[in-house]
């Protein structure tokens, strides 16, 4: 299905965003000059970024800066007008969202998109779908192979749910869960697809401070356990500064700053983008 190495591109010199332990390894995502126009509007332009295979990266910026558009470009919901995306060294140009997922990108959504009418465990099983080995004929006839595959899937789902502390909710309907749990269920479902990189779109939105603190721990634990990269969009600066190793700041579809949390915090361009010119001046006077 997926054509490998359609385009051979020599990796750029190590991007500043890659953490030290990932240097020398192939970046999981290598985005070059990505851009998209909607009619006359340039939503994202010359977006270049590399993410290490075990990095936690943050993508921040004011509302409407184009962060979610970038996620949609990475998962091929939109096809980019310019530039290329190398996922584990493979150009994803022309692939469908489903193919990109099978190659290694899983995501969550800003406005939660669960399979509301199904139970929590079934939501996770849908995530496992492509790794369940059971033919259509076997499912039609409910052969012993079907029961074996289903049992294995159920056990794996419960493991994953347990990992995010949701094992006791397995039989509930997905849309009856509280908000925070729905967000965590989206993460579990994404993890079930065995991604190489997990894209989280505002994972802490609507969570209270204690839930957010728990989520921060869980994000780090996901990276450590599954040895995957995480890229997140978030407005909660405590979370971003707490877990991200590298941060890219976007405004009007362009990267205006890249660096470690410390560098970003003190970058005058970033402060100006968030607070405006007057606000930045006031901030400088205060500081």
């Amino acid at each position: 299905m997926i054509q490998k190495n359609r385009t051979k591109l020599v990796p750029l010199p190590t991007d500043i965003l890659i953490p030290e332990r990932d240097i020398g390894k192939q970046p999981v995502l290598d985005i070059r000059n990505l851009g998209i126009d909607f009619g006359g509007l340039t939503a994202v332009d010359s977006f270049t970024l590399a993410i290490g295979p075990t990095e936690i990266a943050g993508l921040i910026g004011p509302n409407g800066a184009g962060k979610t558009t970038i996620f949609n470009l990475l998962t091929n919901v939109y096809q980019p007008t310019r530039g290329s995306i190398l996922l584990r060294g493979i150009d994803t140009k022309g692939m469908t969202t489903a193919q990109v997922n099978r190659l290694g990108i899983a995501r969550t959504f800003q406005n939660i998109r669960l399979f509301g009418g199904m139970s929590v465990i079934d939501n996770v099983k849908v995530g496992l779908h492509n790794s369940i080995k059971c033919s259509f004929a076997s499912s039609l006839l409910h052969t012993p192979g079907y029961y074996k595959a289903e049992k294995k899937a159920r056990e794996r789902c419960l493991e994953l749910l347990d990992f995010m502390g949701m094992a006791d909710m397995a039989q509930l309907r997905a849309d009856s869960l509280p908000y925070g749990a729905q967000r965590r269920l989206e993460i579990v479902r994404a993890l079930a697809t065995k991604p190489a990189i997990l894209l989280l779109d505002e994972p802490a939105a609507g969570m209270n401070p204690s839930e957010t603190a728990e989520l921060m721990e869980q994000i780090v634990r996901i990276r450590d356990t599954f040895q995957i990269a995480v890229m997140l969009i978030e407005h909660d600066m405590n979370l971003v500064m707490g877990v991200c190793e590298g941060i890219a700041v976007v405004n009007y579809g362009k990267i205006i700053a890249k660096g470690t949390p410390e560098q970003i915090c003190n970058d005058p361009v970033v402060i100006e983008a968030y607070l405006g010119k007057k606000g930045a001046a006031a901030h400088a006077a205060e500081g």
């Binding site: 998962t75 998109r113 779908h129 492509n130 499912s139 994404a190």
Partner: peptide, 22 residues
């Protein structure tokens, strides 16, 4: 079966179903 779950997932939310590789 897994096919049925996929079908119901598509009914409930096609975009999410595609994002998990269906």
């Amino acid at each position: 079966s897994k096919e049925g779950r996929a079908v119901k997932a598509i009914r409930d939310n096609a975009i999410a179903a595609e994002s998990v590789g269906l």
